[in-house]
Nucleic acid binder design. Sequence first.
DNA 1: CCTGAAAATGAATCTGCTTTCATTCCGCGA
DNA 2: TCGCGGAATGAAAGCAGATTCATTTTCAGG
Lengths: 223, 223
Amino acid sequence: MAYRQTDNVAQRLAENRQKILSAARALVADGGFAKAQITAVAKNAGLATGTLYRYFPSKDDLCRQVFREVSAREMNLLAGIAASNRPALDRLDLILRTFSGRALKNRRLAYALLAEPLDLALTEERTRFRKTHAAIFARVIEDAISEGAIRPCDAKFASACFAGAIPTALTGPLAPVAGDMSADDVLQEIVRFCFGAIGATPPVHRKAVNADTKSNTNGELHP
Amino acid sequence: MAYRQTDNVAQRLAENRQKILSAARALVADGGFAKAQITAVAKNAGLATGTLYRYFPSKDDLCRQVFREVSAREMNLLAGIAASNRPALDRLDLILRTFSGRALKNRRLAYALLAEPLDLALTEERTRFRKTHAAIFARVIEDAISEGAIRPCDAKFASACFAGAIPTALTGPLAPVAGDMSADDVLQEIVRFCFGAIGATPPVHRKAVNADTKSNTNGELHP
DNA sequence: CCTGAAAATGAATCTGCTTTCATTCCGCGA
DNA sequence: TCGCGGAATGAAAGCAGATTCATTTTCAGG
Protein backbone atom coordinates (compact mmCIF):
# COMPACT_ATOMS: atom_id res chain seq x y z
CA MET A 1 0.00 0.00 0.00
CA ALA A 2 1.01 3.60 -0.51
CA TYR A 3 3.04 5.21 2.21
CA ARG A 4 1.28 7.95 4.15
CA GLN A 5 3.08 10.19 6.59
CA THR A 6 1.81 9.79 10.12
CA ASP A 7 1.04 12.85 12.21
CA ASN A 8 3.61 11.58 14.59
CA VAL A 9 6.27 11.59 11.95
CA ALA A 10 5.20 14.90 10.49
CA GLN A 11 5.56 16.45 13.91
CA ARG A 12 8.99 15.02 14.46
CA LEU A 13 10.08 16.37 11.11
CA ALA A 14 8.82 19.80 12.00
CA GLU A 15 10.58 19.60 15.34
CA ASN A 16 13.83 18.62 13.71
CA ARG A 17 13.57 21.50 11.33
CA GLN A 18 13.15 23.82 14.28
CA LYS A 19 16.01 22.17 16.12
CA ILE A 20 18.25 22.84 13.17
CA LEU A 21 17.21 26.44 12.87
CA SER A 22 17.58 27.03 16.58
CA ALA A 23 20.98 25.45 16.66
CA ALA A 24 22.12 27.59 13.77
CA ARG A 25 20.63 30.71 15.32
CA ALA A 26 22.36 30.02 18.60
CA LEU A 27 25.70 29.61 16.90
CA VAL A 28 25.20 32.79 14.94
CA ALA A 29 24.16 34.76 17.99
CA ASP A 30 27.26 33.49 19.73
CA GLY A 31 29.94 33.71 17.10
CA GLY A 32 28.43 35.08 13.92
CA PHE A 33 27.72 33.21 10.73
CA ALA A 34 31.32 32.15 10.60
CA LYS A 35 30.58 29.73 13.45
CA ALA A 36 27.60 28.21 11.70
CA GLN A 37 29.35 25.36 9.90
CA ILE A 38 27.18 22.44 8.91
CA THR A 39 29.00 20.04 11.20
CA ALA A 40 28.67 22.34 14.18
CA VAL A 41 25.01 23.03 13.52
CA ALA A 42 24.29 19.32 13.18
CA LYS A 43 26.07 18.53 16.39
CA ASN A 44 24.29 21.31 18.21
CA ALA A 45 20.96 20.10 16.88
CA GLY A 46 21.72 16.52 17.90
CA LEU A 47 21.54 15.23 14.35
CA ALA A 48 23.98 13.86 11.82
CA THR A 49 25.43 16.15 9.21
CA GLY A 50 23.74 14.32 6.38
CA THR A 51 20.40 14.78 8.04
CA LEU A 52 20.50 18.54 7.66
CA TYR A 53 20.41 18.03 3.93
CA ARG A 54 17.03 16.40 4.22
CA TYR A 55 15.74 19.67 5.61
CA PHE A 56 17.71 22.25 3.71
CA PRO A 57 19.11 21.88 0.23
CA SER A 58 22.37 23.60 1.09
CA LYS A 59 24.21 25.46 3.75
CA ASP A 60 23.45 28.72 2.01
CA ASP A 61 19.74 28.04 2.17
CA LEU A 62 19.90 27.25 5.84
CA CYS A 63 21.86 30.36 6.65
CA ARG A 64 19.65 32.54 4.53
CA GLN A 65 16.66 31.22 6.39
CA VAL A 66 18.30 32.05 9.69
CA PHE A 67 19.21 35.50 8.50
CA ARG A 68 15.66 36.14 7.35
CA GLU A 69 14.04 34.95 10.51
CA VAL A 70 16.27 37.00 12.71
CA SER A 71 16.07 40.10 10.61
CA ALA A 72 12.35 39.83 9.93
CA ARG A 73 11.66 40.35 13.59
CA GLU A 74 13.58 43.61 13.55
CA MET A 75 12.09 44.84 10.34
CA ASN A 76 8.54 44.10 11.39
CA LEU A 77 9.02 46.03 14.55
CA LEU A 78 10.25 49.05 12.65
CA ALA A 79 7.66 48.71 9.92
CA GLY A 80 4.97 48.64 12.59
CA ILE A 81 6.18 51.91 14.02
CA ALA A 82 6.44 53.45 10.58
CA ALA A 83 2.83 52.53 9.86
CA SER A 84 1.40 54.07 13.02
CA ASN A 85 -0.39 57.37 12.74
CA ARG A 86 1.69 59.64 14.90
CA PRO A 87 3.49 62.63 13.42
CA ALA A 88 6.27 61.53 11.09
CA LEU A 89 9.10 62.94 13.17
CA ASP A 90 7.83 61.15 16.25
CA ARG A 91 7.85 57.95 14.28
CA LEU A 92 11.35 58.61 13.04
CA ASP A 93 12.57 59.24 16.54
CA LEU A 94 11.00 56.04 17.74
CA ILE A 95 12.37 54.00 14.87
CA LEU A 96 15.88 55.27 15.40
CA ARG A 97 15.76 54.56 19.10
CA THR A 98 14.19 51.18 18.67
CA PHE A 99 16.58 50.00 16.03
CA SER A 100 19.63 51.28 17.82
CA GLY A 101 18.48 50.25 21.25
CA ARG A 102 17.95 46.69 20.16
CA ALA A 103 21.27 46.53 18.36
CA LEU A 104 23.07 47.76 21.45
CA LYS A 105 21.28 45.25 23.62
CA ASN A 106 22.49 42.36 21.50
CA ARG A 107 25.72 43.46 19.96
CA ARG A 108 26.88 40.07 18.78
CA LEU A 109 23.77 39.42 16.78
CA ALA A 110 23.72 42.98 15.51
CA TYR A 111 27.27 42.49 14.35
CA ALA A 112 26.33 39.35 12.48
CA LEU A 113 23.41 41.06 10.77
CA LEU A 114 25.04 44.38 10.05
CA ALA A 115 28.80 44.20 9.92
CA GLU A 116 30.30 40.72 9.93
CA PRO A 117 32.13 39.79 6.70
CA LEU A 118 29.85 37.33 4.91
CA ASP A 119 29.90 35.26 1.76
CA LEU A 120 27.97 36.19 -1.34
CA ALA A 121 24.71 34.49 -0.49
CA LEU A 122 24.44 36.11 2.90
CA THR A 123 25.59 39.45 1.66
CA GLU A 124 22.65 39.31 -0.67
CA GLU A 125 20.40 38.61 2.25
CA ARG A 126 21.90 41.48 4.18
CA THR A 127 21.29 43.75 1.26
CA ARG A 128 17.62 42.93 1.37
CA PHE A 129 17.66 43.76 5.05
CA ARG A 130 19.36 47.07 4.53
CA LYS A 131 17.13 47.99 1.66
CA THR A 132 14.14 47.40 3.83
CA HIS A 133 15.56 49.67 6.49
CA ALA A 134 16.21 52.31 3.96
CA ALA A 135 12.69 51.99 2.60
CA ILE A 136 11.26 52.44 6.07
CA PHE A 137 13.36 55.50 6.68
CA ALA A 138 12.50 56.90 3.29
CA ARG A 139 8.81 56.51 3.88
CA VAL A 140 8.89 58.34 7.18
CA ILE A 141 11.08 61.11 5.82
CA GLU A 142 8.68 61.58 2.93
CA ASP A 143 5.82 61.76 5.37
CA ALA A 144 7.65 64.39 7.33
CA ILE A 145 8.09 66.40 4.18
CA SER A 146 4.48 66.19 3.13
CA GLU A 147 3.42 67.07 6.67
CA GLY A 148 5.53 70.16 6.25
CA ALA A 149 7.57 69.22 9.31
CA ILE A 150 10.85 69.53 7.43
CA ARG A 151 12.10 71.27 4.34
CA PRO A 152 12.00 69.01 1.24
CA CYS A 153 15.06 66.85 0.55
CA ASP A 154 15.90 63.68 -1.30
CA ALA A 155 14.36 61.13 1.03
CA LYS A 156 15.81 58.12 -0.78
CA PHE A 157 19.26 59.55 -0.53
CA ALA A 158 19.00 60.53 3.10
CA SER A 159 17.62 57.13 4.01
CA ALA A 160 20.57 55.39 2.35
CA CYS A 161 22.83 57.56 4.47
CA PHE A 162 20.93 56.61 7.59
CA ALA A 163 21.15 52.95 6.67
CA GLY A 164 24.90 53.32 6.34
CA ALA A 165 25.57 55.58 9.26
CA ILE A 166 23.60 53.84 11.96
CA PRO A 167 25.13 50.37 11.72
CA THR A 168 28.58 51.88 11.54
CA ALA A 169 28.01 53.95 14.61
CA LEU A 170 26.52 51.02 16.50
CA THR A 171 28.57 48.00 15.54
CA GLY A 172 31.94 47.13 14.18
CA PRO A 173 35.31 48.72 14.60
CA LEU A 174 34.23 52.34 14.37
CA ALA A 175 31.53 52.09 17.00
CA PRO A 176 32.31 53.64 20.38
CA VAL A 177 33.65 51.02 22.73
CA ALA A 178 31.36 50.11 25.61
CA GLY A 179 32.34 52.37 28.47
CA ASP A 180 33.34 55.10 26.09
CA MET A 181 29.71 56.13 25.72
CA SER A 182 26.60 54.86 27.50
CA ALA A 183 23.87 53.29 25.41
CA ASP A 184 21.64 56.27 26.16
CA ASP A 185 24.28 58.67 24.95
CA VAL A 186 24.57 56.71 21.75
CA LEU A 187 20.83 56.83 21.13
CA GLN A 188 20.88 60.51 21.86
CA GLU A 189 23.66 61.15 19.39
CA ILE A 190 22.11 59.04 16.67
CA VAL A 191 18.85 60.91 16.90
CA ARG A 192 20.64 64.21 16.97
CA PHE A 193 22.72 63.29 13.97
CA CYS A 194 19.88 61.96 11.85
CA PHE A 195 17.47 64.73 12.67
CA GLY A 196 20.09 67.32 11.95
CA ALA A 197 20.89 65.69 8.65
CA ILE A 198 17.37 66.25 7.38
CA GLY A 199 17.04 69.65 8.98
CA ALA A 200 14.72 68.67 11.79
CA THR A 201 14.77 69.26 15.52
CA PRO A 202 14.62 66.13 17.69
CA PRO A 203 11.46 65.78 19.79
CA VAL A 204 11.84 65.33 23.54
CA HIS A 205 13.09 61.98 24.70
CA ARG A 206 10.75 59.07 24.24
CA LYS A 207 11.12 55.42 25.27
CA ALA A 208 12.19 52.98 22.53
CA VAL A 209 9.95 50.09 21.59
CA ASN A 210 11.33 46.75 22.62
CA ALA A 211 9.51 43.54 21.87
CA ASP A 212 11.49 41.47 24.33
CA THR A 213 10.21 41.18 27.85
CA LYS A 214 13.25 39.67 29.45
CA SER A 215 16.75 40.07 28.16
CA ASN A 216 17.21 37.83 25.19
CA THR A 217 20.77 37.07 24.32
CA ASN A 218 20.56 34.03 22.12
CA GLY A 219 18.67 35.50 19.24
CA GLU A 220 15.78 33.10 19.77
CA LEU A 221 12.52 34.22 18.23
CA HIS A 222 9.33 33.90 20.24
CA PRO A 223 6.64 35.03 17.90
CA MET B 1 83.35 32.31 -5.09
CA ALA B 2 80.26 33.65 -3.32
CA TYR B 3 77.24 34.59 -5.36
CA ARG B 4 76.60 38.32 -5.74
CA GLN B 5 73.38 39.74 -7.13
CA THR B 6 73.99 41.73 -10.29
CA ASP B 7 72.36 45.09 -10.80
CA ASN B 8 70.76 43.57 -13.80
CA VAL B 9 69.11 40.89 -11.74
CA ALA B 10 68.15 43.22 -8.93
CA GLN B 11 66.35 45.35 -11.42
CA ARG B 12 64.50 42.45 -12.95
CA LEU B 13 63.39 41.37 -9.50
CA ALA B 14 62.06 44.82 -8.78
CA GLU B 15 60.31 44.88 -12.11
CA ASN B 16 58.70 41.53 -11.45
CA ARG B 17 57.47 42.72 -8.12
CA GLN B 18 55.87 45.67 -9.80
CA LYS B 19 54.42 43.49 -12.51
CA ILE B 20 52.76 41.37 -9.88
CA LEU B 21 51.34 44.32 -8.02
CA SER B 22 50.10 45.92 -11.22
CA ALA B 23 48.49 42.73 -12.39
CA ALA B 24 46.73 42.33 -9.07
CA ARG B 25 45.65 45.96 -9.06
CA ALA B 26 44.26 45.67 -12.54
CA LEU B 27 42.25 42.62 -11.62
CA VAL B 28 40.92 44.31 -8.52
CA ALA B 29 39.99 47.46 -10.37
CA ASP B 30 38.18 45.35 -12.89
CA GLY B 31 36.40 42.75 -10.80
CA GLY B 32 37.17 43.39 -7.17
CA PHE B 33 39.40 41.36 -4.89
CA ALA B 34 37.37 38.29 -5.69
CA LYS B 35 38.99 38.26 -9.11
CA ALA B 36 42.51 38.48 -7.72
CA GLN B 37 43.25 34.75 -7.44
CA ILE B 38 46.88 33.79 -7.39
CA THR B 39 46.65 31.93 -10.67
CA ALA B 40 44.98 34.83 -12.41
CA VAL B 41 47.44 37.35 -11.04
CA ALA B 42 50.36 35.20 -12.10
CA LYS B 43 49.00 34.77 -15.59
CA ASN B 44 48.33 38.48 -15.88
CA ALA B 45 51.83 39.25 -14.72
CA GLY B 46 53.31 36.77 -17.16
CA LEU B 47 54.83 34.63 -14.41
CA ALA B 48 54.22 31.20 -12.97
CA THR B 49 52.12 30.81 -9.85
CA GLY B 50 55.02 29.54 -7.83
CA THR B 51 57.00 32.62 -8.71
CA LEU B 52 54.62 34.92 -6.88
CA TYR B 53 55.60 33.19 -3.69
CA ARG B 54 59.15 34.33 -4.13
CA TYR B 55 57.87 37.90 -3.94
CA PHE B 56 55.03 37.66 -1.46
CA PRO B 57 54.77 35.18 1.38
CA SER B 58 51.07 34.61 0.84
CA LYS B 59 48.08 35.72 -1.10
CA ASP B 60 46.87 37.69 1.88
CA ASP B 61 50.09 39.67 1.99
CA LEU B 62 49.88 40.45 -1.69
CA CYS B 63 46.28 41.59 -1.47
CA ARG B 64 46.92 43.65 1.63
CA GLN B 65 49.72 45.38 -0.17
CA VAL B 66 47.43 46.17 -3.07
CA PHE B 67 44.75 47.43 -0.76
CA ARG B 68 47.18 49.66 1.04
CA GLU B 69 48.68 51.14 -2.06
CA VAL B 70 45.35 51.94 -3.58
CA SER B 71 43.84 53.31 -0.43
CA ALA B 72 46.93 55.25 0.63
CA ARG B 73 46.55 57.48 -2.40
CA GLU B 74 43.02 58.38 -1.35
CA MET B 75 43.86 58.91 2.26
CA ASN B 76 46.84 61.11 1.55
CA LEU B 77 44.74 63.30 -0.62
CA LEU B 78 42.18 63.76 2.11
CA ALA B 79 44.75 64.15 4.83
CA GLY B 80 46.40 66.86 2.78
CA ILE B 81 43.20 68.81 2.58
CA ALA B 82 42.52 68.33 6.27
CA ALA B 83 45.93 69.73 7.10
CA SER B 84 45.56 72.89 5.05
CA ASN B 85 44.85 76.13 6.86
CA ARG B 86 41.49 77.17 5.50
CA PRO B 87 38.46 77.40 7.75
CA ALA B 88 37.40 73.97 9.01
CA LEU B 89 34.06 73.94 7.24
CA ASP B 90 35.68 74.75 3.93
CA ARG B 91 38.02 71.86 4.46
CA LEU B 92 35.15 69.57 5.34
CA ASP B 93 33.31 70.57 2.21
CA LEU B 94 36.36 69.92 0.10
CA ILE B 95 37.06 66.58 1.71
CA LEU B 96 33.52 65.37 1.21
CA ARG B 97 33.51 66.41 -2.42
CA THR B 98 36.93 65.01 -3.12
CA PHE B 99 36.28 61.67 -1.52
CA SER B 100 32.88 61.28 -3.11
CA GLY B 101 33.89 62.65 -6.46
CA ARG B 102 36.74 60.22 -6.77
CA ALA B 103 34.62 57.28 -5.69
CA LEU B 104 32.00 58.15 -8.28
CA LYS B 105 34.63 58.46 -10.96
CA ASN B 106 35.88 54.95 -10.35
CA ARG B 107 32.97 53.00 -8.99
CA ARG B 108 34.43 49.55 -9.40
CA LEU B 109 37.50 50.33 -7.40
CA ALA B 110 35.47 52.23 -4.84
CA TYR B 111 33.26 49.21 -4.48
CA ALA B 112 36.28 47.00 -3.88
CA LEU B 113 37.66 49.33 -1.23
CA LEU B 114 34.42 50.21 0.48
CA ALA B 115 31.72 47.64 -0.01
CA GLU B 116 32.79 44.37 -1.59
CA PRO B 117 32.51 41.35 0.71
CA LEU B 118 36.07 40.46 1.71
CA ASP B 119 37.82 37.84 3.75
CA LEU B 120 39.16 38.49 7.23
CA ALA B 121 42.59 39.76 6.25
CA LEU B 122 41.26 42.32 3.83
CA THR B 123 38.43 43.32 6.10
CA GLU B 124 41.10 44.21 8.60
CA GLU B 125 42.80 46.31 5.98
CA ARG B 126 39.55 48.00 5.12
CA THR B 127 38.99 48.77 8.76
CA ARG B 128 42.27 50.63 8.87
CA PHE B 129 41.14 52.58 5.85
CA ARG B 130 37.81 53.50 7.35
CA LYS B 131 39.35 54.40 10.66
CA THR B 132 41.63 56.78 8.90
CA HIS B 133 38.71 58.40 7.16
CA ALA B 134 36.90 58.74 10.40
CA ALA B 135 39.95 60.26 12.03
CA ILE B 136 40.23 62.83 9.26
CA PHE B 137 36.59 63.75 9.59
CA ALA B 138 36.85 63.90 13.35
CA ARG B 139 39.77 66.23 13.21
CA VAL B 140 38.06 68.68 10.92
CA ILE B 141 34.85 68.57 12.92
CA GLU B 142 36.78 69.29 16.08
CA ASP B 143 38.45 72.20 14.38
CA ALA B 144 35.08 73.53 13.33
CA ILE B 145 33.94 73.34 16.92
CA SER B 146 36.95 75.11 18.33
CA GLU B 147 36.66 77.75 15.62
CA GLY B 148 33.14 78.29 16.90
CA ALA B 149 31.76 77.54 13.45
CA ILE B 150 29.37 74.93 14.77
CA ARG B 151 27.76 74.07 18.07
CA PRO B 152 29.78 71.42 20.03
CA CYS B 153 28.94 67.78 19.35
CA ASP B 154 30.63 64.42 19.67
CA ALA B 155 33.07 64.63 16.78
CA LYS B 156 34.16 61.00 17.05
CA PHE B 157 30.64 59.84 16.83
CA ALA B 158 29.66 62.07 13.97
CA SER B 159 32.72 61.06 12.02
CA ALA B 160 31.88 57.37 12.41
CA CYS B 161 28.45 58.19 11.01
CA PHE B 162 30.03 59.99 8.08
CA ALA B 163 32.34 57.06 7.45
CA GLY B 164 29.32 54.79 7.33
CA ALA B 165 26.94 57.01 5.46
CA ILE B 166 29.14 58.16 2.62
CA PRO B 167 30.24 54.80 1.27
CA THR B 168 26.70 53.53 1.51
CA ALA B 169 25.35 56.47 -0.39
CA LEU B 170 28.06 56.20 -3.03
CA THR B 171 28.60 52.51 -3.62
CA GLY B 172 26.82 49.26 -3.25
CA PRO B 173 23.20 48.32 -3.52
CA LEU B 174 21.75 51.32 -1.73
CA ALA B 175 23.53 53.90 -3.82
CA PRO B 176 21.44 55.74 -6.39
CA VAL B 177 21.74 54.06 -9.76
CA ALA B 178 23.60 56.06 -12.38
CA GLY B 179 20.99 58.03 -14.24
CA ASP B 180 18.84 58.27 -11.16
CA MET B 181 20.97 61.13 -9.89
CA SER B 182 23.85 62.97 -11.53
CA ALA B 183 27.24 62.86 -9.86
CA ASP B 184 26.91 66.54 -9.03
CA ASP B 185 23.58 65.99 -7.38
CA VAL B 186 25.09 63.24 -5.29
CA LEU B 187 27.93 65.47 -4.13
CA GLN B 188 25.43 68.18 -3.36
CA GLU B 189 23.29 65.87 -1.28
CA ILE B 190 26.22 64.39 0.60
CA VAL B 191 27.44 67.80 1.61
CA ARG B 192 23.97 68.87 2.58
CA PHE B 193 23.45 65.74 4.62
CA CYS B 194 26.76 65.86 6.45
CA PHE B 195 26.68 69.56 7.16
CA GLY B 196 23.14 69.31 8.44
CA ALA B 197 24.08 66.43 10.67
CA ILE B 198 26.58 68.55 12.57
CA GLY B 199 24.39 71.64 12.51
CA ALA B 200 26.34 73.58 9.91
CA THR B 201 25.35 75.38 6.73
CA PRO B 202 27.15 74.26 3.56
CA PRO B 203 29.42 76.86 1.99
CA VAL B 204 28.85 77.78 -1.64
CA HIS B 205 29.92 75.25 -4.23
CA ARG B 206 33.60 74.63 -4.60
CA LYS B 207 35.51 72.36 -6.99
CA ALA B 208 36.68 69.00 -5.62
CA VAL B 209 40.35 68.12 -5.57
CA ASN B 210 41.28 65.44 -8.03
CA ALA B 211 44.80 64.17 -8.32
CA ASP B 212 44.23 62.47 -11.65
CA THR B 213 44.77 64.48 -14.76
CA LYS B 214 43.17 62.18 -17.25
CA SER B 215 40.47 59.70 -16.42
CA ASN B 216 41.98 56.73 -14.69
CA THR B 217 39.90 53.63 -14.70
CA ASN B 218 42.34 50.86 -13.90
CA GLY B 219 43.39 51.89 -10.43
CA GLU B 220 46.99 52.26 -11.49
CA LEU B 221 49.08 54.46 -9.24
CA HIS B 222 51.38 57.00 -10.82
CA PRO B 223 53.19 58.53 -7.91
C1' DC C 1 82.63 26.64 -22.16
C1' DC C 2 81.68 25.13 -17.35
C1' DT C 3 79.92 25.56 -12.81
C1' DG C 4 77.38 26.79 -8.93
C1' DA C 5 73.79 29.30 -7.00
C1' DA C 6 69.70 31.90 -7.32
C1' DA C 7 65.31 32.28 -9.87
C1' DA C 8 61.46 30.41 -12.21
C1' DT C 9 58.34 26.83 -13.16
C1' DG C 10 53.72 24.45 -12.78
C1' DA C 11 51.94 19.98 -11.66
C1' DA C 12 50.98 17.85 -7.49
C1' DT C 13 49.59 18.50 -2.80
C1' DC C 14 47.19 20.29 1.00
C1' DT C 15 43.30 22.35 3.44
C1' DG C 16 38.71 23.25 5.35
C1' DC C 17 35.05 23.12 4.37
C1' DT C 18 30.39 21.30 2.03
C1' DT C 19 27.91 17.70 0.02
C1' DT C 20 26.85 12.89 -1.25
C1' DC C 21 25.25 8.21 -0.77
C1' DA C 22 25.47 3.25 0.50
C1' DT C 23 23.99 1.63 4.58
C1' DT C 24 21.34 1.16 8.84
C1' DC C 25 17.36 2.42 11.60
C1' DC C 26 12.52 3.04 12.59
C1' DG C 27 7.46 3.25 12.48
C1' DC C 28 3.48 1.85 10.50
C1' DG C 29 -0.04 -1.09 8.41
C1' DA C 30 -1.12 -5.84 7.08
C1' DT D 1 5.43 -10.39 13.79
C1' DC D 2 6.89 -9.05 9.12
C1' DG D 3 8.15 -6.15 5.41
C1' DC D 4 8.12 -1.88 3.12
C1' DG D 5 9.61 2.74 2.43
C1' DG D 6 10.89 6.89 4.22
C1' DA D 7 14.37 8.93 7.64
C1' DA D 8 18.81 9.13 9.64
C1' DT D 9 23.59 8.28 9.58
C1' DG D 10 28.56 9.60 9.10
C1' DA D 11 32.46 8.21 6.58
C1' DA D 12 34.10 9.25 2.22
C1' DA D 13 34.17 12.12 -1.88
C1' DG D 14 34.22 16.73 -3.97
C1' DC D 15 35.57 21.21 -4.45
C1' DA D 16 38.00 25.55 -5.12
C1' DG D 17 41.45 27.57 -3.91
C1' DA D 18 46.23 28.48 -1.95
C1' DT D 19 50.64 26.60 -1.32
C1' DT D 20 54.71 23.62 -1.99
C1' DC D 21 58.81 21.65 -4.07
C1' DA D 22 61.52 18.66 -7.23
C1' DT D 23 62.95 20.08 -11.48
C1' DT D 24 64.54 23.21 -15.04
C1' DT D 25 66.33 27.59 -16.53
C1' DT D 26 69.21 31.59 -16.26
C1' DC D 27 73.27 33.94 -15.53
C1' DA D 28 77.79 35.73 -13.78
C1' DG D 29 82.38 34.57 -12.66
C1' DG D 30 86.29 31.52 -13.48
